[in-house]
């Protein structure tokens, strides 16, 4: 078990569903970049299958889903699809407008963390880094 990363964490920052507001995802991408991580950034409106394909090809440690409207409701489907693709070690975080009752559902579905408006840079970076280390330790060696 390592408690540090041997190489920069790789994080997929993306949006699923219908919404296209990207202020949040752009700021998060900049935060993670400035913290020394490698961020794979995409267009909005990714299909669940596309997020899985991206995570697989890019072999990411963490997936960040930004949601302003209600697109976070699709995240449980993503969790199932990641597991099916052998990516159970990949950590998923959701950021944006997520009502409390939905947050409980997301956490139950395997989401590691939900960030709400007002979350600050330091907390986000620290948490993503912690999750990247955890994912990295669980990643199958072959």
């Amino acid at each position: 078990m390592n408690d540090v990363l041997l190489a920069p964490a790789r994080v997929l920052v993306t949006k699923i569903g219908l919404d296209g507001h990207d202020r949040g995802s752009r700021i998060i991408a900049a935060y993670l970049r400035d913290a020394g991580m490698e961020v794979i950034y995409t267009n909005p409106w990714q299909a669940i299958d596309a997020v899985v394909a991206l995570a697989l090809e890019e072999d990411v440690d963490v997936i960040g889903i930004s949601s302003l409207a209600t697109d976070h409701l699709l995240v449980p489907k993503l969790m199932v699809a990641l597991d099916a693709a052998g990516l159970g070690h990949v950590r998923v975080v959701v950021g944006g407008i997520v009502p409390d009752e939905d947050e409980a559902n997301l956490l139950a579905a395997g989401v590691s963390k939900v960030f709400h408006p007002g979350a600050v840079r330091e907390d986000i970076v620290t948490e993503v880094e912690r999750l990247a280390i955890a994912a990295s330790n669980e990643r199958p060696l072959d």
Partner: peptide, 10 residues
């Protein structure tokens, strides 16, 4: 053609 979970929510 839309995932039913996110229909009509906004």
């Amino acid at each position: 053609e839309v995932e039913p979970e996110i229909l009509g929510t906004c």
